[in-house]
Design a protein around this nucleic acid. Sequence first.
DNA 1: TCTCGTATAGTTGTCGGACAACGGACATCT
DNA 2: AGATGTCCGTTGTCCGACAACTATACGAGA
Lengths: 249, 249
Amino acid sequence: MVSTKTGENRLGSRTALPVRLADDLRGRLAAHEWSPGEQLPTEADLVHTYGVSRATVRQALKTLEGRGLITTRRGRGSFAADVGTIHAGMQELKSITATIAEMGHRPGMRYHHRVLRVATGVEQDMFGIGPGEQVLDIQRKIMADDIVVAYSYDVLPRWVFPTDFRPKDLTGSVFAFLADNDGPTPVRALANVKAVSDLSIAWDGALEPGELFLLLDQLHYDEHNRAFMYTRSYFIEGRFAFTVMRTAR
Amino acid sequence: MVSTKTGENRLGSRTALPVRLADDLRGRLAAHEWSPGEQLPTEADLVHTYGVSRATVRQALKTLEGRGLITTRRGRGSFAADVGTIHAGMQELKSITATIAEMGHRPGMRYHHRVLRVATGVEQDMFGIGPGEQVLDIQRKIMADDIVVAYSYDVLPRWVFPTDFRPKDLTGSVFAFLADNDGPTPVRALANVKAVSDLSIAWDGALEPGELFLLLDQLHYDEHNRAFMYTRSYFIEGRFAFTVMRTAR
DNA sequence: TCTCGTATAGTTGTCGGACAACGGACATCT
DNA sequence: AGATGTCCGTTGTCCGACAACTATACGAGA
């Protein structure tokens, strides 16, 4: 197989090479192509089969190692981790909708509130916008297979939307809307995790007293390091699984 | 500066090179050597100043990018993220004690229960040990500046301790004890996050009704991919900050 | 003067090859 | 049988090169 610096390889050609390779390997891991603890192909093998350089292979393997999907030992090789199920961990930045879909459920959404209003002082600081500028204020509940899993309160500055935007245009996933309308691309989010219990969170009175929530208080940033979305999502305890792979390095 | 493959560089020489470099840069970032958004030295500069190869530099930068401390843009350079404080995120695997100390508080600990007993069936599966083998069962509360921040229920298989070990030998941090006694080195932990409210968690009756906890349900693995510690830590809501840097890749 | 395309320099992304360091397996010696 | 030495496969690190991208400077043309 010939492979030049810009030549074809065994992967698509959109995003960065190591990312695509990591995604491909992640898929093969999820398909249980290697049993837990079993050795993966060596770096040299991967270089050969994918037609990419060893630097690319190593970066992809490092990514998987950081996510806890494999372990690598010098002089030995890389091995599939024996974590039961491949999990969509908390540290992967994805829309809630996408995460639900990946878990094999049917995502849904119902908007309760959706208006443009003037930004508060805190919001001006957060988004780096001037006084008097507008933000979109959203309240919605998010469902999986028609079961409510979360209530979400979101705020986005006006500039992320097209100039002719009207609140009613926004119907489904916010991330999907932004991607389709030249909006900012989410790159990072700093999330604060809390446990709360407050019935006034649910506006439809569909919850019983004593209901617990896991609150994800998040500020999202785009590729230019600009904050463009602030969300407070209250996940009803027990209806959504949150896992974090913690690593020493 | 001369730099050979095994030669001296500007860092110590114990753990892996990219890790040490990443730690060093993390320290300089924490010291606000670069303002938020300011450009870091180029990869070529870092190669020169640290006396390591560009591959090493790139891997260190990737680590920092994954932790959300910097952003890298092709053709431009790397830039310090404008996250207010350098935060000890959830995805860094550290003992609770160490985390408290890093936050500038004085960690403390009080054991309530500490006995060797026979492993249950679930624990046999979890640790891969045979029937009849022993585990150490711990219950303790963890404090910061003499204020209780968490109640923790931990289980470890017998083999992680020295042969002449007796429960009373364990007084402080479990991680510290293992490090000092040839125990396994923690490398990863798979954590499950939940919100709970159950007064029976606190055995000392020091809490008021309605108290909320953030539960971290964790299974720890060592460098050989062996599960060696299962912990259920109940953090009293509001007394401990949990943040997660979520990244797209 | 202004606009726009082009050239240029600077930086990260990827490539290829090389050697060092480590771990295991096996043969050898005591 | 146990300890020791050697070989081989694999990952860790290094080096140099070129491709791809970004921002800026510059010049031609209006």
